[in-house]
Amino acid sequence: MALLKGTLDLLVLKTLSWGPMHGFEIVSWLEDRSGGRLAVDDAALLQALHRLEERKLLAAEWGVTKNSRRARYYSLTTAGRAYLRAESAKMVDHFDALVTILGAKKREASS
């Protein structure tokens, strides 16, 4: 399934909540962690990173990977952390509601 823009932003923020990563690392981690269920569009991800940096939810700086390559590392800002906390709670709640409806066995609510 294609990912919505807002969802991708949250996923990126969450990915970075444990520490800075560069673009490909983020994609790779998401694919692994979701067990291949999430197919992230590469170009969309890089654009999302630019957007989040513009909104000052991420900060970026050039660094060197363990393969001695130059890469641009992104890290979460304080504002980004706060945003992640608030928005992921909302989204989890939203999807919980979806799951409740879609997983309902019968029409009437169980008492």
Binding site: G19, E61, W62, G63, K66
Partner: peptide, 10 residues
């Protein structure tokens, strides 16, 4: 934690 070494670009 990746990117441990950070080169300074200025």
């Amino acid at each position: 934690m990746t990117g441990a070494n950070r080169a300074r670009a200025g």
